[in-house]
């Protein structure tokens, strides 16, 4: 091999340097700021049990947000996730009525999630339809089926050991849900950042045609991500149903928008192609802390949504405004 006349180094920045200058670090500062502000604002904030309770604000949503992050990075979206929760929860509730036990309930919840994900995936990847419209449709369809089955009724009577998923604690103040959240976060971080599959997801999101021409099985990868999103909705359905102890067709209403907000706040580009799981994890904490902190100050939920909405727009707008007005 000839000696290169022009040496090209592997990297100019180490991955750590990249990370430090990134969106995630900025978001981390925001999270720490909110944490400190909260602890000054309310004497009840720095209490282990209160903080543990606060995690329930985001754990179920975040589980879905991780899969949604992969989906959005790959250039698609799934607005039917909350409706999948409703359908999966309804299926579990119906199973309870015929005496299915806890293991069977979990299996049913997860299977319904997977099936719904597969349905979305087939419509989008098999028929080549735009996912935003397809999942607006399936969102009405899935929740609509719950409404047909339940109307204005509710399913109750879940077995007592089923309560563990949403109400159980693994150790001291560490809830089962929080542990599950951490495990799922780790799994998704590994999938997205350390595997060939994750690399394919990024490639597809940046340039799906280019990825196809590079030998990536684009449709298959997208289909799998839809499956993962459906499965995560099933997992969240198990946790939420267990925590509430009942199923109404309006369960988790409007969650899809909060989940998308969480993903975008976490630095995932809504146009696809970039983002990270650590970012989404921090975004989940930020949203949880804001909700919890305002809750302690007796600020009603709807006002929190203003904060969340403003946060969503400003995290994207501020860097752009800064770039526009910065002296050249």
């Amino acid at each position: 091999m000839s000696t290169a006349s022009h040496f090209v180094p592997d990297r100019l920045q180490t991955p750590l340097e990249r990370r430090l200058k990134s969106w995630e670090s900025l978001l981390m500062l925001v999270a720490i700021g909110i944490f400190i502000a909260n602890s000054f604002a309310s004497p009840y904030f720095l209490n282990a049990w209160n903080l543990s309770d606060a995690t329930f604000n985001f754990t179920e949503k975040a589980m879905i947000a991780f899969a949604m992050a992969l989906l959005i990075i790959s250039g698609e979206i799934d607005l039917s996730v909350a409706a999948i929760i409703a359908l999966a929860s309804t299926a579990m509730g119906a199973a309870v009525q015929v005496g299915v036990g806890t293991p069977g309930l979990v299996l049913i919840g997860l299977s319904v999630g997977l099936l719904c994900g597969a349905f979305n995936g087939i419509l989008v990847t098999g028929l080549g339809l735009p996912s935003i419209v397809v999942t607006i449709g399936t969102m009405s369809l899935f929740r609509g089926i719950s409404f047909i089955i339940l109307g204005d009724q509710a399913y109750r009577g879940y077995p007592s050991d089923f309560a563990f998923f949403g109400q159980g604690y693994v150790w001291w103040v560490i809830s089962f849900e929080f542990v599950l959240f951490a495990i799922i976060a780790a799994i998704y971080a590994v999938i997205l950042h350390m595997t060939n599959f994750g690399r394919a997801v990024y490639a597809i999101g940046n340039n799906a045609t280019g990825a196809l021409f590079s030998g990536i099985r684009v449709a298959r990868v997208k289909f799998i991500v839809f499956l993962m999103t459906g499965l995560m909705s099933g997992v969240a359905a198990v946790c939420l149903t267990s925590r509430l102890g009942s199923t109404r067709p309006s369960i988790a209403f409007g969650w899809e928008l909060e989940i998308v907000t969480m993903v975008v706040l976490g630095g995932v580009s809504i146009l696809g192609g970039s983002g990270s799981i650590p970012g989404v994890v921090i975004a989940a904490f930020v949203m949880g802390l804001v909700t919890f902190g305002l809750g302690l100050l007796n600020v009603p939920g709807i006002v929190m949504s203003i904060v969340i909405g403003a946060l969503l727009i400003s995290v994207i707008a501020l860097p752009r405004l800064w770039a526009m007005w910065r002296p050249r």
């Binding site: 690399r199 940046n206 280019g210």
Partner: peptide, 28 residues
């Protein structure tokens, strides 16, 4: 449109069709 994936770094473009060879059991 069909050739390079602009927003990905050079090395990720080059290895995209060869990932099976540069990875182990699906891990990069």
């Amino acid at each position: 449109r069909q050739g390079a994936i602009g927003a990905l770094p050079i090395f990720q473009n080059v290895t995209l069709p060869s990932l099976a060879r540069t990875s182990r059991k699906g891990f990069l």
